[in-house]
Simulated assay, not measured.
Amino acid sequence: MLKELNHLTLAVSSVDQSFNFYRHILGFKPVAKWDTGAYLTLNTLWLCLSQDQVCRYNDYTHYAFSIDHELIDEFINKIRNEKIPEWKDNTSEGKSIYFLDPNGHKLEAHVGNLATRIRECKKRPYSNMVFFD
C-alpha cells in the first residue's frame, strides 16, 4: 500500500529558468540536470522538472512548503524583491505567502503544520466540518 509522497514532477517550459528558480530562489539542492529535465531535492522531497507544454488551471491546487517562523518575513521580502507574482492573500492560520513559479505553478511557503491547522479549525470550524480522532 501507499506510504508517502515519492516525488513531485512539474511540467516546465524552460528547464534552465525553472532550475534556477527552484535552486537559487527556493533553495532546492541540484542532483542532476539534462536537456529536458532536472532532479532537485529539498530535505526528503524529490522534485523532477520535466520540459513539456504547460497547461495552467484556475483552481486551488498548489504545492506548499514548510518554513520556520523566524525565516518567513525574510522569505516574503525575497519573493517580493524578485517581483515574483503572488496569486492569493493568506487568510488561514499561520503566516504564508502564495506565489507562482516561472510556469505558473501555484506555490506556498507556510508556517505551521496539520496539527496547528486542526487546532485552529477546532476553534473556528469550516462549514459542516467533522473531525476524526
Rank of each mutant, 00 (worst) to 15 (best):
Y98V: 05
K123A: 15
D68V: 07
C121E: 12
I79H: 03
I84L: 12
Q51C: 08
D133E: 13
K29F: 02
R23H: 01
I25F: 08
F131H: 06
I25E: 12
H62Y: 05
V111M: 04
N103P: 05
L71G: 04
F65E: 09
P125T: 09
K123C: 15
P30M: 00
K106G: 10
E86A: 06
D16L: 07
A115H: 10
V31S: 00
T36I: 11
L26M: 14
V15Q: 07
F132N: 05
D59K: 04
D16A: 09
C48P: 01
L5A: 04
T41G: 00
S14T: 06
R119H: 10
I97Q: 00
V54M: 10
L114F: 06
S50H: 10
G94K: 00
R56T: 13
F21W: 06
K78S: 14
A64W: 01
R56N: 14
D101V: 11
D101N: 12
I72A: 03
L8Q: 03
L107E: 10
K95I: 03
A32L: 09
S18N: 10
P125L: 05
K29Y: 03
N58S: 11
L2T: 08
P85L: 14
T9I: 10
K29G: 02
A38P: 03
L2F: 07
N81D: 15
K29Q: 09
K95G: 01
R80H: 06
A38M: 04
F132Q: 07
K78L: 15
F19Q: 01
P125H: 06
I72H: 03
A38V: 05
D59R: 08
G27F: 13
G104H: 12
G112R: 02
T91P: 03
D68T: 10
R124A: 13
S127Y: 11
G112I: 04
D89Y: 12
L49P: 02
V12K: 10
Y98M: 08
K95W: 00
Y63D: 06
P85H: 15
E82A: 15
K33P: 06
F19W: 00
E86M: 07
Y60T: 13
